[in-house]
């Protein structure tokens, strides 16, 4: 595997593919820091001179952007709480017990994961109007929870499988009830894994466009706001570029922070 030809080929491929992934991100970052007048000028240079935060500022100060940013964060927070609170007990049950119907449940979860669930936002919109959930952040969070729940169950199952039941049993022989053993031993050890489930859920909720767009009118999340501005109102390019860059920043940071767990989170639990 170490003949010079192979090594050169490998290097070329790695460089090309890395450039393919990074280049567009660099371009939109450059565009976001070019002044608005320059963006519309022709011709202009590739690298902005000078670098300016004006376009970003324009986007952030555009109507509803800050409010929808806050909305997005609130929806993500609600989704995380709901998905972990609802999913973790199921994950715990799958990791600890043998019981009738376990395989049926597992298959159900698998089916849910492989279902185009965002589409369900259309019929849900009708129900949500009746349930007073239409155009509310909670409504969006509930749909995002539906999307995230199967993954939360699968991730927490593997997290609790990694916490030996003997530890809880040991705690029980030392005077804990079952619930105390969970709270004092299993829970603290599982916490980093639960954090991973939370991060996965955040990325899912932060990026979800379709359901958020369908289910909101005034209380838009950030993707829903930008989607509508672009899709129905034809937003100008400075708004598009700055908005695009703004929306990918948290994702870039998160992917960087959890880079060691990418394979486990996306590669294993997504299937």
């Amino acid at each position: 595997m170490t003949t010079p030809g192979r090594k050169a080929l490998l290097t070329v491929l790695v460089v090309l593919i890395s450039a393919w992934v990074l280049f567009p991100i660099i371009l939109i970052a450059l565009a976001s820091f070019t002044t608005r007048t320059q963006l519309y000028a022709w011709p202009r240079s590739l690298v902005p001179s000078p670098f300016s935060a004006e376009t970003m500022r324009f986007f952030v100060q555009a109507q509803d952007v800050l409010q929808s940013l806050l909305n997005s964060l609130l929806v993500a927070a609600m989704t995380i709480v709901l998905a972990v609170l609802i999913g973790a007990p199921a994950g715990y049950a799958l990791s600890r017990f043998r019981f009738g119907g376990k395989e049926v449940f597992r298959l159900g979860i698998l089916g849910t994961k492989m279902f185009p669930a965002t589409i369900l936002a259309v019929p849900l919109a009708v129900s949500f109007i009746n349930w007073n959930l239409y155009d509310t952040l909670l409504g969006v969070a509930l749909v995002h929870t539906t999307l995230a729940l199967p993954f939360a169950v699968v991730i927490t199952t593997s997290v609790f499988v990694g916490v030996p039941f003997e530890l809880e049993e040991a705690a029980m022989t030392l005077g804990c009830s079952r619930a105390q053993a969970f709270r004092k031993v299993a829970m603290p050890i599982a916490l980093p894994g639960l954090a991973a489930a939370a991060i996965f859920t955040f990325v899912l909720s932060w990026n979800e466009v379709f359901a958020a767009t369908i289910l909101t009118l005034r209380n838009r999340t950030l993707p829903a706001l930008v989607m509508n501005a672009v899709g129905l109102a034809g937003a100008p390019i400075d708004y598009r570029f700055a908005g695009g860059f703004f929306m990918i920043i948290p994702a870039l940071i998160i992917i960087f922070v959890i880079r060691r767990y990418l394979l486990t989170l996306w590669g294993v639990t997504v299937r």
């Binding site: 890395s18 990026n207 695009g244 994702a251 880079r259």
Partner: peptide, 19 residues
């Protein structure tokens, strides 16, 4: 290399379209 190639995992279809 894995990290670089995985970056788009965190980017939505809307974000990618704008990029």
């Amino acid at each position: 290399f894995l990290f670089i190639c995985a970056i788009p995992l965190g980017i939505s279809d809307l974000g990618a379209g704008l990029i």
